[in-house]
Amino acid sequence: MDDDRSTSTCTEEPEAILHGGDLDEISRRYPDAPRPWIDLSTGINPVPYPVPQIPPAAWARLPARSEQHALLAAAAARYGVEAPAMIVAAPGTQALLQILPRLRPRATVAVLAPTYEEHALCWRRCGHRVALVDDVDALAVADVAVIVNPNNPTGRLLPRDTLVALAATLRRRDGLLIVDEAFTDLHPNASLVADLPPATIVLRSFGKVYGLAGVRLGFAISSEDIVRRLPEELGPWAISGPAIAIGTAALADDAWLAQTGARLTADCLRLDALLGSAGCNVVGGTPLFRLIDTANAPDIAERLARHGIHVRRFPAHPAWLRFGLPGDETSWQRLAQALGR
């Protein structure tokens, strides 16, 4: 990333993007559906990390510098970051998505698609020229290349060697590689963090595997010259005291993550079998969600909604549906019944 202070100004009106988790809207559309709704529209662990007791002081005062450092140390250890100075915390990776386009002069940006649509939107809103490409080689000619790995919603997982080679190509042209590793917690060998290539920014999400999206916590990992610019954009005390306390405890809990990984693996196998028995073709996914491709996708989504079950639809890919994992046996049984199995 350039060291000069020439930046982009983001002034365009945001586009409307459909996201998962919109229970208010789906409830309005299906007022007679059974309650409570089962939300399978997000790729979030349905069995969250047990929130520890939060000291009253975390609510009553601004976070201390030592507490912020403890969070970064826990995140660095969890993700394999070489030094805490290479990582910065943000109130969710979405905040980082919106900041990064401001830190680079107008550029050509290539996003490996289809993928999480906010990446392209945030760069386009700041006046950058954005192209959606479906081939890794096409990323190498851009100033900025953006990849979600593993991908959301397809689960595509690019080999580490491919990303390292791309980073080297971009660096020779003063380019930048951004890799969103929101779903990499259970694919540790796929992460770029432990041996981070130059001219690369890795984004990590806390809320997905820990099931605590409401905490709003994410991280950017890069070389120190890049990372030190991000706190200037985030401002002081960007992370709340309760979020710091929760994140520090959860990121240090090796046993919980190992147990969660085993449970999610078993649940994915169960979901694959359930979807297969209902005639649904599973074409991708991660340990937190599955993607099906079927001409009957609109009918399936409609049937599930009338049973109080919300799944993720994709207007640009009407044959796709993304299923998150049910969180308890009652939800599993309701899903099976709604699918007709």
Rank of each mutant, 00 (worst) to 15 (best):
E12Q: 15
E118Y: 14
A182P: 01
D254K: 04
T115M: 06
V47A: 02
A74C: 03
V51F: 09
A273S: 11
D134S: 04
L192M: 10
T294D: 06
T184D: 13
A73M: 14
P48L: 06
C268L: 03
R102D: 07
R313F: 03
D253M: 02
D174L: 12
D3Q: 10
L288T: 02
P55W: 02
S331N: 11
A110H: 11
A243Q: 12
L291S: 00
M86Q: 15
V311W: 00
T108P: 00
E12R: 15
P150V: 02
L96P: 15
E13T: 15
Q333F: 03
G308C: 04
T169L: 10
I17D: 12
L23Y: 12
N151P: 00
G324M: 02
F206I: 02
R204L: 00
D143P: 09
T286A: 01
V179I: 10
A70V: 12
L274Q: 08
L251Y: 04
G175I: 02
T154R: 06
G20N: 01
M1V: 12
A73W: 08
G235F: 05
L166Q: 09
A213L: 12
E233T: 12
S8M: 13
P242L: 03
L271T: 06
P114D: 02
L230K: 01
T154E: 05
A338D: 07
H310M: 08
A319M: 05
R102K: 14
P84G: 11
G21I: 07
D272L: 05
A75C: 15
D137V: 04
G80M: 08
P287D: 01
L304Q: 02
L170R: 01
L170P: 01
P56I: 01
V148I: 07
P101S: 11
A145C: 04
Y30I: 05
G285Y: 00
P84C: 08
F323A: 00
D135A: 03
P236N: 08
W332L: 01
H317N: 04
R5S: 05
T169H: 13
S205Y: 04
Y49I: 02
P298H: 01
R341M: 09
A64V: 07
A140W: 06
E329L: 06
G235T: 08
E12I: 14
A266Y: 02
P36I: 09
S205W: 03
